[in-house]
Design a protein around this nucleic acid. Structure first.
Lengths: 202, 202
DNA sequence: TTACTATACGGAGGGTGCCTCCGTTTTTCA
DNA sequence: TGAAAAACGGAGGCACCCTCCGTATAGTAA
């Protein structure tokens, strides 16, 4: 992978690479924050996150000057994981399994997003590009995974990635979705995605 | 009006009426909170609210044990104002003007709701009935106002209150709605609500 | 009016959370 | 290996939520 963890200047361009300990702690902190937010919800304290990462709060604040920066880093990581998994498909998973894995990954992503909902709302307000960019990346990834399944004849070809996300995304956003219900509905969607059998050709 | 401000027991039944000073302060506090939330946003502090009301924080906390209780009281008041205004229509305003006033009131209500969005999310989580009940009351009020306008021949009769709310409510919820845009769109909706002229009967 | 009691008031202060500051430790590089 | 640069850690400042309790006042009965 080409994206090394670095400090960035205001223009977003790469700056000096981080010192080894700094980089190690950066990664620990993001992972600790993800864990703590999952366990305790979006109001978990900075002290808790630092402790979980095994560093002092000073270190946490050097890497993430404001609380919202931690939230943003966790969220960016989640999006990254989802999109990467989509493009890891070819060569590792057959096209249909890759599609199934992507959709399951999306549901998990959406669940994680829900516990940070208030925090993310603030982050999106401050930085509207983050929301749009993330959405675009995810929808595009969905399109690629679906297209591969379609090219292999494993998925019906009369819908595209945007259609699929338009169906699944609101389902995940709706407040009353339980984990089991999400699984059942996803199974149904996947069944509906299979190419129509010969007897069903109208 | 029959609803006097009282303390309530756990079952919601009426208890002893409040002492005069307590009641005065209760009302001042709700109004102060509404003002402060409008001015400073939903994260305004309890101290600020108490100061704005001219009372100590102790008094604020006696009336509203948790921060979220203040939010809920403000919200309930907003709903009450909107619904009351709807039913004040007959006798005070001609049916069409009452409908117009109701919709403008709804847009204002929705705007106020937006600054409390995070707080209300929490309140609705804790008390799901609040959300549903408020929605029902508002949609029903819309139905009554629209029905009166329809009965007077001032509004087209092929849509009902639920249709109307289904149109206007998402418009207000959407994050990017500006105040001017809301006014323009509402004007358009109102034009669309007028009964079709004779020349347009298809 | 007065005296008495239940009720309400006010704000100091406890606890926690975000964030800053700076002395100490570790890494890097000549 | 030694010095400079970079990063670490956590005490402490500040703001906020909420509690506690001494003081003040509305309501009531004589």
């Amino acid at each position: 992978m080409a994206t090394e963890v670095m400090s960035e200047d205001a223009t977003g361009g790469p700056a000096k690479p981080m010192r080894a300990d700094a980089r190690r702690n950066y990664e620990r902190l993001v992972e600790a924050a993800r864990q703590v937010f999952t366990d305790q919800g979006g109001e978990a304290s900075m002290e808790t996150i630092a402790k979980q990462a095994g560093v002092g709060v000073g270190t946490l604040y050097r890497h993430f000057p404001k609380r919202i920066d931690v939230v943003e880093a966790v969220y960016r990581g989640d999006v990254e994981t989802l999109v990467r998994a989509a493009d890891r498909g070819p060569g590792e998973l057959p096209p249909w399994e890759a599609l199934e894995a992507f959709l399951r990954g999306y549901v998990a992503y959406a669940r994680g997003k829900k516990v940070l909902i208030n925090e993310l709302h603030e982050a999106f307000d401050k930085n509207p590009g983050l929301k749009l960019e993330s959405r675009d990346r995810i929808w595009a990834a969905c399109g690629r995974v679906l297209a591969r399944a379609q090219a292999a004849g494993m998925a019906r070809s009369d819908i595209d990635g945007d259609d699929l996300m338009q169906l699944v995304s609101p389902m995940c956003v709706h407040a009353t979705l339980t984990e089991e219900q999400g699984d059942r509905l996803l199974a149904m969607v996947l069944d509906g995605l299979r190419p129509p059998g010969p007897e069903k050709l109208s």
